[in-house]
């Protein structure tokens, strides 16, 4: 396929016993694009993310990731840590941090995980190891600055606010030098002011770092402001695709949302 894509998902089906989480899902994500996936609860959005990152292994279909230098990499069958090394970073719906560690340590773990292990090097602390440490430290500080958490570098991450946790997860993901960042409901649990900051941050990640963004979000205002294109999932299937304006006008989408919660449907309009 063409190399202007970052993800090419073809006919993916994911089942858990009798439950079909994704059924024949096909979608593509262009390099440098802010793409959103929306849909009611249980539609399969998180399952899609987990399939894209190697956490779940779909039974059918193919997922191609175009990594560094647009090299095509097949995701299905790869372990999550390999997918991360290839250049896919993510955040989690219920934020998952290394809670007993500081903000700084959380991000540093992301920054240094891609280098080789070298037990002896780590124990002896040779010059190469020291240089590596210095680089990770510098990168960590840089990223904390970028997301605006520099002043909370030494805070234990469990005591951060929801908004700060989201930023931390973004910084930790970016520390792995990804090509694409997957954000699973980043605005959940944040207040209106934090939402605005988050919107700006996500746009900054794409504009300044050139990282493509794939976003799951329930907050329609945020989605419509950020996304350049959207896919709508319902019961594990893609029911619509288009620009924010096209989606707003799509009858099937309004139907799907009316079927779940009216307030969401109203937000959509």
């Amino acid at each position: 396929m063409t190399s202007d894509l970052i993800f090419d998902v073809q006919n993916v089906t994911l089942r858990f016993g009798g439950v079909i989480s994704l059924s024949d899902v096909s979608l593509n994500h262009k390099r440098g694009e802010i793409l959103a996936v929306i849909g009611p609860n249980g539609a399969g959005k998180t399952s899609l993310f987990n399939s894209l990152t190697g956490v779940y292994q779909p039974q059918e279909g193919s997922i191609t990731f175009f990594g560094r230098n647009a090299k095509p990499i097949s995701i299905i069958g790869k372990k999550a840590h390999r997918v991360s090394t290839a250049g896919v970073a993510r955040t989690f719906q219920a934020s998952r941090m290394f809670s007993a560690l500081t903000t700084f340590e959380n991000v540093k773990i992301g920054a240094e995980s891609h280098r080789g292990i070298g037990v002896l090097g780590a124990m002896v602390k040779g010059p190469a190891t020291r240089r590596g440490e210095k680089m990770s430290d510098a990168r960590t500080i840089e990223l904390l600055d970028f997301v605006g958490l520099r002043d909370k570098a030494n805070t234990i991450s469990a005591s951060l606010s929801y908004g700060d946790r989201r930023r931390l997860e973004i910084a930790r993901g970016l520390a792995t030098n990804p090509q694409v960042l997957l954000l699973d409901e980043p605005a959940a649990g944040t207040n209106p002011a934090e939402k605005i900051q988050l919107t700006q941050l996500i746009r900054k990640v794409r504009d300044e770092m050139g990282v493509s963004i794939l976003l799951i979000e329930h907050d329609m205002k945020l989605v419509m402001a950020l996304a350049e294109r959207l896919y709508v999932l319902n019961f594990g299937s893609v029911i619509a695709e288009g620009t924010p304006d096209e989606i707003r006008a799509n009858a099937a989408v309004v139907e799907a949302y009316l079927g779940s919660t009216t307030s969401d449907a109203e937000e959509l309009k």
Binding site: T53, V55, K79, A80, H81, S84, T85, A89, R90, F92, R96, M97, F98, S99, A100, L101, E105, K108, I109, G110, E112, S113, H114, R172, G173, A175, T176
Partner: peptide, 18 residues
């Protein structure tokens, strides 16, 4: 640090390439 990360949250640790 990688051990600590795995101990605290294995899924998150894997997501950053450990």
């Amino acid at each position: 640090r990688a051990w600590t990360a795995i101990r605290e949250d294995e899924v998150a640790a894997e997501s950053v390439g450990i």
